[in-house]
Design a protein around this nucleic acid. Structure first.
Lengths: 345, 345
DNA sequence: CTGTTAGCGCTTTCAG
DNA sequence: CTGAAAGCGCTAACAG
């Protein structure tokens, strides 16, 4: 029960009657240390059950081998898939992941970012809170020299690193699919208008309609704040139109779930009176008796992995002390094409 | 662009022509420092945008204000609900959460535990990997003086701290419900036999049958390894019996999802030919047209919060240096009753 | 190849 | 009320 009596290099040095620096070097396989000494040191370290005190190393090296991941919510399937892959990647590099959920609250987000800064994380992966409009933290982190990679919810700025998913390709496929099935009344339940993700979807929606020679009906675009009530209301708005649409693209699966409930509550039948396609983030369709017609896959796991990869590149670059300020890395963006998958029906 | 030129207490001391110790004390509101000095120090610190270097503090204080959370999977709803609450709780105490997913692999689990030990976390919350049979890490962590709280998947040992959910109450209610609806052919799709959680469920299942005067039919208890195939196979085993059961309790929602698919694939109808109740961990029933009859709620969020609470008690206790070894805290367990909820049908 | 020395930033006795 | 000095455990010039 050698409580708290963790051995240190000093202890090893004393027992071996050599200096601490030699011990340190031996332990780190420094080439300049003789093979025999190295062996002796390692052997004793083993015996004593020596473990380096990383807090000392962190302190000394100004590096923590820790990255921060900040997400709106840890309990949404999209994000848990992403973090799962991030953790995986980090783990393979012997990095540790620290975690924060913003709950889409900008204040909370800022607080988490500060905590992470204070913990001196080596980098941050961030999916911004939906309601964040001011991105002061970008400046804060830049000053602190902490690299950041965004994904999913990416601020509409140039000088940032991000994994973005091209929402347009998937939307086009969705509309094409609907059109080729003969649908003309195609509606769109979009998310909050201020989100880049909403704008992009909407543009793509309109483009795709035009492409298919379907005239745009403004009533067919409705908005939800993504709450259950918002989703339901938006859906009812569509259902109550004199000319009810027969096909609906929606912002994401959560919206679709509520929408389908609303549809049923009105005595209509999914996949008969009305068809759905949505951006995928909830992997349950295979279990539903009447799933949407298809999903636009956004590959959250892949996005997470790519974000991690990009972040580690930035970290490595920093570490290899590019003293020159070319290190002001211009924002780099990797685009991931969304695409239609899972023809459920 | 004061790159890397974070001000230190030394800097403040110099400018104010006082000693670093005074600065340190002032910053920490030490009572022995004069009000005026304290003010001056704080003011300058503010101006310089001083931020204490936590890595130095961690090093000095042998405390990292970080807890580790290790879960089998980050992408299962049950666990994301739990971690979400843990993060919440930790956040409110200004602690940081570091994260690891074992993917139910004992080796990986051990590796993560070592990483966390090395990062000197102040405590760990752990839901053990399903396949872990050897709990050497308990000893390791005890020696390292890192308190641990288990939840959900808890080793069957006495000297550990844990939040356990009493699976029996819920099972009893489930069987009672089935029985009161007139079901006599009640089956049980259990998880891997070696799990404490499976054993407990099975005991409760048998007890409850007896209680309701229903004779036990051994064929009505089947097992799955929780894979999709395992779930399907187990279900088919039941369906193919000469006397098909009319009601099924299953290990958890994921099992039920696959089971319901299997049932449908055989041309049977859920909630007509066969009824389901399962331990809840997947919040989607409200969206299903034919959900299970009810769910046995296990309150993952609450379990997480309780685990965090218990862990912080242990940490605080340690910190208030109970040098005496009464600190060999006997295992304490908090039991959470599972109960039947969501009468979906 | 190895030892000496200094120091990371902060806290904390011990003396005033 | 304040300062001087030591030290946490480790690394890294700089000397041999």
């Amino acid at each position: 029960m050698n409580k708290g009596k963790q051995p240190t290099i000093k202890e090893i040095a004393k027992r071996l009657k050599i200096s601490t620096s030699t011990v340190s070097r031996a332990l780190n396989d420094h080439p300049s240390i003789g093979l025999i000494t190295t062996m002796r040191v390692k052997k004793l370290a083993e015996e004593l059950n020596y473990e380096p005190n990383r807090t000392a190393i962190f302190f000394k090296q100004r590096k923590t081998f820790t990255i921060g991941v900040i997400l709106p919510s840890l309990s949404e399937a999209f994000f848990s898939a992403a973090i799962s892959e991030i953790e995986n990647f980090a783990n393979s590099r012997n990095y540790t992941v620290i975690l924060g959920q913003s709950l889409d609250d900008p204040e909370r987000e800022l607080k988490i970012i500060n905590t992470m800064k204070v913990h001196r994380v080596d980098g941050i992966i961030l999916s911004s809170a939906k309601n964040t409009r001011e991105f002061e933290y970008i400046e804060i982190l830049r000053n602190a020299g902490i690299p950041v990679v965004f994904f999913d919810c990416v601020p509409d700025l140039v000088q940032i690193n991000a994994i973005v998913s091209n929402l347009k390709t998937g939307m086009k496929e969705a509309i094409d699919t609907f059109a080729s099935c003969g649908h003309r009344g195609i509606a769109f339940i979009n998310g909050p208008a201020h989100l880049p993700a909403s704008k992009e979807r909407e543009e793509a929606f309109i483009d795709a309609l035009v492409n298919n020679g379907i005239p745009l009906n403004r009533d067919y675009i409705v908005y939800t704040d993504l709450s259950e009530k918002g989703n339901t209301d938006a859906t009812l708005q569509l259902i109550n139109l004199s000319e009810r649409p027969s096909a609906v693209v929606s912002f994401n699966d959560y919206v679709t779930l509520d929408a389908m409930n609303a549809v049923r509550s009105k005595g209509l039948t999914v996949n008969q009176d009305i068809f759905f396609i949505s951006y995928a983030n909830y992997p349950i369709w295979k279990y539903m008796e009447n799933p949407p017609m298809a999903s636009i896959e956004q590959l959250p796991g892949k996005q997470g992995a790519l974000a991690a990869e990009m972040l580690f590149e930035l970290i490595d670059r920093d570490t290899e002390e590019n003293a020159d300020d070319s290190g002001i890395k211009q924002g780099r963006k990797i685009v991931l094409e969304s695409k239609l998958v899972n023809q459920h029906v």
